[in-house]
Design a protein around this nucleic acid. Sequence first.
RNA 1: GGCGCAGUAGCAAAGUGGUAAUGCAGUGGACUGCAACUCCGCGAUCGUCGGUUCGAUUCCGACCUGCGCCUCCA
Length: 463
Amino acid sequence: MGLVLYNSLNRKKQAFTPLDPQRVTLYACGPTVYNFVHIGNARPAVAFDTLYRVLRSLYSNVVYARNITDIDDKIINASKDLGEEINVISNRYSEAYFKDMAALNTLQPDLAPYATQHIPEMIRMVETLIEKGHAYAADTEIADQKGHVLFAVQSMPDYGQLSGRSLEDMLAGARVEVASYKKYAGDFVLWKPSSDSEPGWYSPWGRGRPGWHLECSAMIKKHLGDTIDIHAGGQDLIFPHHENEIAQSCCANNGKALANYWLHNGFINIDGEKMSKSLGNFRLVNDLLQQYPGEVLRYVILSSHYRSEQNFSKDLLDSAWRSMDSLYGFIRGIDSVEPLLNRDGAGYQALLDDLNTPVAISELYRLTKEVNQVSGKEQQDKIAELMGLADILGLLQQDPEQWFTQGRGGDEISAQEIEALIQQRHEAKQNKDYAGADAIRQQLLDQGVVLEDSRDGTQWRRS
RNA sequence: GGCGCAGUAGCAAAGUGGUAAUGCAGUGGACUGCAACUCCGCGAUCGUCGGUUCGAUUCCGACCUGCGCCUCCA
């Protein structure tokens, strides 16, 4: 079977056929860098990183772009709150983003374009849209309203196609007051004026900054082309963000489709509730990484299908950690072999079926069982297959020894102390002092260290 | 009001028109000085009520419950 993807455009699974098999293009919406990212931001990064890995297994040249939004009102507000320069904030948090995502074993995208480095391209696109009659500069002399350029949604017959709603429907439920400079209530901002204290760039409409949606359209056009294969992001971006990207790009590029496949990941909730500032239940990846290995977070994210909603909780993380332990426990002590992806294997086939990562993970377990049932060359092949599947999932990337001896947060007994106690226990055992040996075992267990005796000696792991 | 999603064992999570993968937890056993690891075994009729069908968890309808989007949002 070839790759099949669920396309939000028509709400169906479709066989994936790239425009150009020699250059497959994937674009995922990245974060606005005004703070550390939360676990919800990590989901698309991990899910579409997995897609990237699958695409690379199928095509020789895949170009994956994930943008950084480094100009936005949220950053401007953060700048005011913190009393720091915009670029200091955006630099700090974009760096943190790359670090956090690397901890989740996401591969570096081929391109990581920054909005602020594409202002001329954005201005050019706005000019094109005005020329073609799809956009207009606000017709007003009121000081703080002057300088807006808006996209005229009524100029685009198909507007609303991705989100599946008509203009009337959208306006019927509108929760926001309509700005007076809009000709039509549904029109959205392409360019807006900046005050002297706000960051801005000079444009034909005065000093200002781009609207939110524009950067993606401009950067895709510049780096990937007028029409790309796959555009991905969170479900909440379907409207308005992606709908508006489509409108801008399509109208600016003579009606060409912006993307042939649109993928959207579901939301992550915290203990049954949506993450929100008012509830104060944000889980920052950076914080979680203090307590859990990045692979555990990745495992959790991949353990449910990317389109379904996922409920995050401590229990889920702890249970995922134990699950990972059992996988690492299995490969601990076996000789490493060159990973080999089995393209006919159920795990890889599951990934080709709209990224069914839960099934792929279950195959990991099935393979470990199979390794036990065979021996010799056959066993080596199974191990290679296991690691090949793990590689494409971005799991089991650590050395098992390191995995079990890594810290698990908090004050912990050091490896040296553990080794010393193991030596003491060994001596006790030699003297048939089993009570003494057991006391040491219990003492370590109380400190979260489990001992495993074998013919070759004693292994330990933190639990 | 409009559009849309979900409800599967204690928890998590796949899946199929012909009586339901997998993981964690629990539990019985083998192994062990005792353990751990590992191995073998054990659990659900799939929100409710109807309909279609030889047969539905899987299709259709209604209902109940939870949730998302409707220009801040992954």
